[in-house]
């Protein structure tokens, strides 16, 4: 298990390889379908959101407001990343993103952007909303909540020991491409 402690540097991300299990400590920003489309179309990042050397988490959490007015994340697993494939490479490049957390992996354009700009894809366990919510120690802020609604907003989360697996690295390696190739070959022998 490798510890990824903020700030997330290019050197740190370049040292990771497909198959590495990591634990993430620091701030991550959630962003999914609406945010990616918005940024792709030239939308401005709200003041306070800084993705440079940062991590985007493809996640639409369940967040409750507590009696004292604080937000509390009560469920927070990853959503399927491939829907952001049309936008992700550009966002990695333009905003200096170092890590993308999600599930299911992404395609060639994102893989190329990871190699070009020193970013990695970190696969969290889909459906593990409680294990991952426990890793969220604090909600620092929320942006675009009114515009996009709670699941699609940008939530600024402090995470601790957030578990993920590197499935796409900055050296062209992709576990997803590998498993697809093997499973396709295995299926061809069986139909």
């Amino acid at each position: 298990m490798k510890i990824l402690q903020a700030p997330f540097t290019e050197e740190m991300m370049r040292s990771l390889r497909v198959g590495d299990e990591v634990a993430i400590n620091g701030v991550v920003y959630t962003g999914r379908d609406a945010v990616h489309k918005y940024l792709h179309e030239g939308g401005e990042l709200p003041p306070g959101v800084n993705l440079r050397d940062g991590i985007i988490y493809h996640c639409g959490p369940v967040v409750m407001k507590e009696a004292n007015g604080d937000w509390k994340v009560t469920a927070a697993g990853p959503t399927t990343s491939i829907r952001e494939e049309p936008y992700q490479g550009q966002i990695i490049r333009d905003f200096g993103v170092r890590g993308v957390i999600g599930k299911g992996g992404m395609g060639d354009r994102t893989l190329a952007a990871c190699a070009a700009h020193g970013c990695v894809y970190l696969h969290a366990i889909g459906g593990a909303a409680q294990v991952l919510a426990e890793c969220v120690k604090r909600v620092r802020n929320v942006y675009l909540l009114e515009k996009f609604g709670s699941p699609e907003a940008i939530w600024e989360l402090e995470v601790e020991n957030f578990p993920a697996v590197v499935t796409m690295d900055s050296h062209g390696g992709s576990l997803h491409a590998e498993v697809l190739r093997h499973s396709q070959a295995a299926l061809a022998e069986r139909v």
Binding site: P61, V62, A75, G126, A129, Q130
Partner: peptide, 21 residues
């Protein structure tokens, strides 16, 4: 292992197993 831990946590805390309900 994470899946199994998640199943136990969700039940004990009476919270959604997955955030996408």
């Amino acid at each position: 292992k994470i899946i199994e831990r998640n199943i136990g946590l969700a039940k004990n805390k009476s919270q959604p197993i997955c955030q996408d309900t």
